[in-house]
């Protein structure tokens, strides 16, 4: 491995710590919604994708079925697959290394890698691996801390966790609202999901909004 540039190291580490800290919110939300500490930690180790993890605990917590929860989380995980398509020709790894690369292919590792690509190819690879591993370590440690903390709390509503979950979703969607089209889609999706809540089984109103997104994307 060639020498890692200080700027790559700094970007990777600062992002890993920041994102890792979200893990506290996830661990706490997960336990507040009925998952065990072990299940919360397994989700962070194996699913390892923040939005998908929040979705699976959010949908089950709202009374949705396991299938609805898995479907919603998986739709949110599709973008990691697209990141894989972008990263594969740049990383050029096979076998076990490819399995590991796939597991740490997330928003942050791909983002840092593409940001570092302008400097040079080595910086791009270093950025990917350092950020991927860094986020993985901190995300899992903080998940455990959050899950244990929530378990010690008892009534999680008294600690505001039932608001922390929607606030976390809001924090995740906020940076994606770049254009008026995005903002309109967000509002329509909210209204649609609420309007369908008394009618459809829990979980389905959320998944159904994916079709609104597809319709908008196909139009222009």
């Amino acid at each position: 491995m060639s020498k890692v540039e200080a700027i790559t190291l700094r970007d990777s580490l600062s992002l890993s710590l920041t994102v890792g800290a979200y893990g506290i919110a996830f661990g706490a939300a997960s336990v507040a919604n009925g998952f065990s500490v072990l299940q919360s930690c397994l989700l962070s180790l194996l699913t390892f994708s923040g939005a998908s993890q929040f979705a699976v605990v959010g949908v089950l917590g709202a009374g949705g079925s396991a299938i609805s929860a898995i479907a919603t989380a998986s739709l949110l995980g599709v973008r990691n697959g697209l990141y894989g398509v972008i990263m594969a020709p740049r990383l050029k790894v096979k076998g076990l290394k490819r399995v590991i690369a796939a597991q740490v292919t997330i928003d942050e590792s791909t983002g840092v890698a593409l940001g570092a690509e302008k400097r040079n190819e080595a910086a791009m690879r270093h950025g990917f691996w350092l950020t991927g591993f860094g986020v993985f370590v901190f995300w899992n440690l903080f998940t455990l801390a959050g899950a244990l903390g929530a378990k010690a709390m008892g009534d999680t509503r008294a600690w505001g966790l039932d608001s922390a979950v929607p606030a976390a979703f809001l924090g995740l969607v906020w940076p994606r609202l770049e254009s008026n089209r995005d903002r309109l889609l967000a509002v329509v999706s909210m209204v649609f999901a609420l309007a369908m809540t008394p009618i459809l089984p829990a979980g389905l109103p959320i998944i159904a909004t994916a079709f609104i997104a597809i319709a908008v994307g196909l139009r222009r």
Binding site: A62, L76, P166, V173, L185, V187, A193, L218
Partner: peptide, 21 residues
């Protein structure tokens, strides 16, 4: 484009459902 829009819809719906239901 659809790939960028799906998270916007799902995450927004989750905000609404988790807040108001």
């Amino acid at each position: 484009r659809i790939n960028a829009l799906i998270p916007v819809a799902l995450l927004s719906a989750l905000v609404a459902v988790q807040t108001f239901t």
